[in-house]
Write a protein that binds this DNA or RNA. Structure first.
Lengths: 99, 99
DNA sequence: CTATTATTTAGACATTTGTCTAACTATCTA
DNA sequence: TAGATAGTTAGACAAATGTCTAAATAATAG
C-alpha cells in the first residue's frame, strides 16, 4: 500500500493516470502532454509501474502504457472502512477518570 | 486534494488515523503509541489537520483529536471514477490513424 | 552499416520530508 | 507563585523526491 500512496502523491503522476483513462499511450505521447523532459516522465512512469497502477508492453521501439486499476481496490476498501467506522464519540482524554 | 494525498503518504499518519477510528485521543495518547518523540507526532498531527483528516479541540491542558472522514469523499469519488472508466482498449501508438 | 527515433539509465542538484533536541506557551495543582 | 504536565514551535540535519542534462540501449529506416 505504501508504494500506492507514494505513486499517487504527485500531481504529474495523477495526471498521467487521468490521461490513460482515455486509452493506452506510449511514453512519448505521455511526455508530450507535459512541460517536462522525457527522463522525468520516464521516472514517473516507473513509479506508477512499481505501484502496479500501469502496465507497460514493448511494441517495436515504442512502449505502450496501460492503466491498471486493480490495485486501487485495496486503497478503496481501506478508505471505505473509514467511512464505515466513524464512531462519533467524545470520551474524556485522561482515560477512564472523568475528573 | 494534494494535501490529502500528502497526508496519507506516510505510514505513521495512516496509523494515527487507524488509532482514531476507535475514538478520540489526545496528542499525548497518540504519541504514546509510537516510538517517536512528541514533536514528531505533533508535526504529523498538524499535517493531518491541514488535510482536514482530523479536527482538534483544546480541552484544558489537553488537545483532543478527532477523526474527520468527510474529506475522504473527494478521494473516494476520484478513485471510483477510475474503476468506472476502464476502457480496455489497445489503440496503436501513432495517434488517431488506425493503420 | 549508419543515422534516426523512442525510451531508459546514470548522475547531479535543489527542494521537500521526517525526525530529533531545545526551548517555548499554556494549564493544572500544591 | 512555583513546579509539573501537555503540547507546540523553532532550528538542525539526514534521507527521500522531483527535475535536469548527458549518455546508453534498442528498434527502425535508408
Amino acid at each position: 500500500m505504501n508504494a500506492l500512496f507514494k505513486a499517487l502523491n504527485d500531481p504529474t503522476r495523477r495526471q498521467i493516470l487521468d490521461l490513460l483513462r482515455t486509452g493506452d499511450l506510449t511514453a512519448g505521447d505521455i511526455a508530450d502532454q507535459f512541460a517536462m523532459t522525457k527522463p522525468s516522465i520516464s521516472h514517473h512512469l516507473d513509479l506508477l509501474r512499481q505501484a502496479g497502477l500501469v502496465d507497460s508492453v514493448k511494441e517495436g521501439q515504442f512502449i505502450r502504457y496501460t492503466l491498471n486499476t486493480t490495485v486501487l481496490d485495496e486503497m478503496l476498501s481501506w478508505l471505505l472502512s473509514f467511512k464505515g467506522s466513524s464512531v462519533h464519540n467524545s470520551s474524556p482524554p485522561g482515560g477512564a477518570t472523568e475528573r
